[in-house]
């Protein structure tokens, strides 16, 4: 995939020490049902099961579920930062495609209301303005978040303003649930996504 001619043969790679780093904060949690679910889906089940809504058992098996600890921007960032670029064996974080300050979260005021929606907006910065893989990267980010976050989270993934020539087209595609659902039934695309998600399972 894309190995013959890279869109960006020489991307800027960020130093690991410059990156936001309290990823280990909820290590205990990360081995719980969520991670297990993602792994199961990516490795074993038929392709349609990567449909974010297929995997909807968010039974909170956290040890400390007596207190509701709200999910924050950092936690959302940590879910998508390790996703690897489809073109380079590098994480979206190290390529600067996802940035903590570009993860936006609006939570409902009343966290006990189970049908109140949270809104997540992630803005991506493609490595080059004509990156043909922006849609695939965006799809990976959306799918990852829809799987890992509870169903009350509405995820929006956009290309950051002025960083991509076809930003509007890419944004519209990524916002279309029917297109996303159909893409997840495409075996080729699923192969690419599976590879991109591998670091998330480590």
């Amino acid at each position: 995939m894309g190995s013959a001619q890279l869109d960006n043969a020489n991307p800027t790679i960020l130093n690991a020490s410059d990156l936001p780093s309290h990823r280990r904060r909820r290590q205990g949690r990360d081995t719980s049902s969520k991670e297990h679910g993602v792994k199961e889906v990516l490795m074993a089940k038929p392709s349609y099961s990567l449909d974010p809504f297929y995997l909807s058992d968010f039974s909170d098996t956290d040890s400390d579920d007596s207190t509701i600890e709200p999910i924050d921007e950092q936690e959302i960032y940590d879910l998508i930062a390790p996703i690897s670029d489809p073109e380079h064996p590098l994480s979206l974080e190290s390529l600067g495609v996802v940035k903590l300050q570009d993860v936006h979260l609006i939570s409902p005021s009343d966290l006990t209301n189970t049908v109140a929606l949270s809104r997540v907006l992630v803005e991506l910065t493609p490595t080059v303005t004509h990156c043909s893989l922006a849609t695939v990267i965006g799809l990976g980010v959306r799918v990852r978040l829809e799987q890992a976050l509870p169903p009350s989270y509405r995820v929006e993934v956009k290309i950051k303003k002025d960083t991509h020539a076809q930003a509007e087209e890419v944004n519209k595609q990524l916002a279309d649930k029917e297109r996303v659902a159909a893409a997840l039934e495409n075996a080729n695309l699923m192969g690419i996504l599976r590879k991109m998600m591998e670091p998330c399972l480590a």
């Binding site: 809504f53 189970t114 049908v115 929606l117 509870p150 169903p151 009350s152 649930k177």
Partner: peptide, 9 residues
Amino acid sequence: LQGGHGAYE
């Protein structure tokens, strides 16, 4: 009516 199918679309 809000949340006709819980948190789902």
